[in-house]
Design a protein around this nucleic acid. Structure first.
Length: 451
DNA sequence: TGTAAGTCAATAGA
DNA sequence: TCTATTGACTTACA
């Protein structure tokens, strides 16, 4: 195919808005007559009118830059309006599982940050949006799925063989499930709040821990090293994504007159995005996986979310053992520390604070390498100091601590209205962080992990 | 070998 | 029943 031509048409195809779908609200779509036989899912590329000869990969490769945030926003609207679930949409249109779809829709990465593979779902979504009939097809599929399910249910018991279910090509129809035997599946590991807190604290001090550090962490937390490794990988990755979202949201707001973005649920500290924390420091490329940036951001958001909630409990638990917990967290070196390597344990400069106990270092202390088994034990030994545990009031007062930079509490204190001062503050904090990091880096202190 | 990106799939919560 | 979260795994890359 002649590239220029196809690219052009492709551009149109992919970018063209899809008014039809937008208007199809409230699931009023009429029953479609034909069973959306369609797509065989997953790998099965959507048929592109006029471009059927192109594989999704080719489309992706030639696709112009797409507005991933806008696409997901529209998809969410369409799915919601038509009462279509993520599972069905994901499995039939994207070839992804529900969890992946949820994640994708909630935290889309900017186009330029996506790999070819990562762009695929967005191209599929855009293509799907482009053809209003697709919604109908999906709704048909949903109906058929339901029917098949009912059928199966009723006829089931005796004849386990259901009707080939819908033509939908959805393969989750039990029949095929190879589920033969047993699952030697290992049970899913669920980290206790205290463990997460401890890991977060460790992360704050050293986002890229050495194998040795990981080993120590694993030992002290009584976790498998692979679990610790995975946790760091996942945490870094998710933090990055949080940052992207914030950037997008912030960008959107400042630009195109705040395209509201309902999805902005993730909308935590909107103000903290782009400019701020990154100010000066990361001026260049916030989005970059630059540890520093993301991390920082992330903390605010992560804290806001996860910690916010569980923190309470965690802190409670920890509180007893460690009253002060407080602030712990943040003090640490911010993310910027990333590769800087050595622990900034001391760095926590931060807190010359009133009581040393509040300093990160201290808070992150877990009595001697003894493995803590029970939650109780953990609570006892791991000073979980959920950022949130520190009362907003308190954290607010520590104006010079890094807390303001990473903790959500800060956000709580300083409302949007104080954006400016906040930004300045953050910028100042970042500067001090950098300074400390530099110092720490040149310092060569042994790293010690204590939880 | 380590990290990032992308996903899966179990599970918690609404 | 659906969505969000998250530990684990796979693949690609430097």
């Amino acid at each position: 195919m002649s590239s220029s031509e196809s690219v052009k048409s492709l551009t149109e195809l992919v970018q063209q808005p899809c008014p039809a779908i937008e208007t199809s609200k409230e699931g009023k779509l009429q029953e479609a007559s034909e069973p959306a036989t369609s797509d065989p899912q997953s790998t099965a590329p959507l048929t592109l009118s006029g471009h059927s000869s192109l594989s999704i990969q080719e489309l992706v490769a030639m696709s112009p830059e797409l507005d991933t945030y806008g696409i997901t926003k529209r998809v969410k609207e369409v799915l919601t309006d038509n009462n279509l679930g993520q599972r069905l949409f994901g499995e039939t249109i994207l070839g992804l599982t529900q969890g992946s779809v949820s994640d994708l829709l909630a935290r889309p990465k900017p186009w330029h940050k996506l790999s070819l593979k990562g762009r695929e779902p967005f191209v599929r979504m855009q293509l799907w949006l482009n053809d209003p009939n697709n919604v109908e097809k999906l709704m048909d599929m949903k109906r058929m799925e339901k029917k098949a399910y009912m059928k199966r249910r009723h006829s089931s018991v005796s004849d386990s063989q259901p009707s080939e279910s819908s033509s939908a090509g959805i393969d989750y129809c039990q029949g095929a499930s190879p589920q033969p035997q047993h699952q030697l599946k290992k049970p899913r590991v669920v980290l206790a709040p205290e463990e997460k807190e401890a890991l977060k604290r460790a992360y704050q001090q050293k986002p890229y821990p050495s194998p040795k550090t990981i080993e120590e962490l694993a030992t002290q937390l009584n976790l498998k090293t692979s679990t610790v490794i995975n946790w760091f990988h996942n945490y870094r990755s998710r933090i990055r994504r949080e940052l992207f979202i914030e950037e997008i949201q912030a960008g959107g707001q400042s630009q195109a007159g705040a395209s509201d973005s309902p999805s902005a649920r993730s909308g935590r500290v909107a103000h903290s995005s782009e400019g701020d924390s990154c100010d000066g420091v990361d001026a260049d490329g916030p989005a970059d996986a630059k540890p520093g940036g993301p991390e920082a951001e992330e903390f605010s958001s992560t804290t806001a979310k996860s910690q916010g909630g569980r923190a309470a409990s965690a802190s409670d638990a920890g509180e007893e053992a460690l009253p002060d917990a407080g602030s712990g967290e943040k003090p640490d070196s911010p993310p910027g520390s990333q590769h800087s390597g050595e622990i900034l344990e001391a760095a926590p400069n931060c807190a010359p604070e009133e009581d040393a106990s509040t300093s990160v270092a201290s808070t992150a202390t877990l009595p001697g390498g003894r493995p803590c088994r029970s939650a109780e034990e953990s609570a006892e030994r791991i000073p979980i100091v959920p950022s949130t545990s520190s009362t907003p009031a308190v954290s607010c007062q520590r104006t010079n601590s890094l807390e303001s930079l990473f903790s959500f509490s800060e956000a709580a204190c300083s409302k949007n209205t104080r954006d400016n001062s906040l930004r300045k503050k953050k910028a100042a904090n970042l500067n001090s962080i950098i300074h400390r990091l530099e110092k720490a880096a040149s310092r060569e202190e042994p790293v010690e992990w204590e939880f």
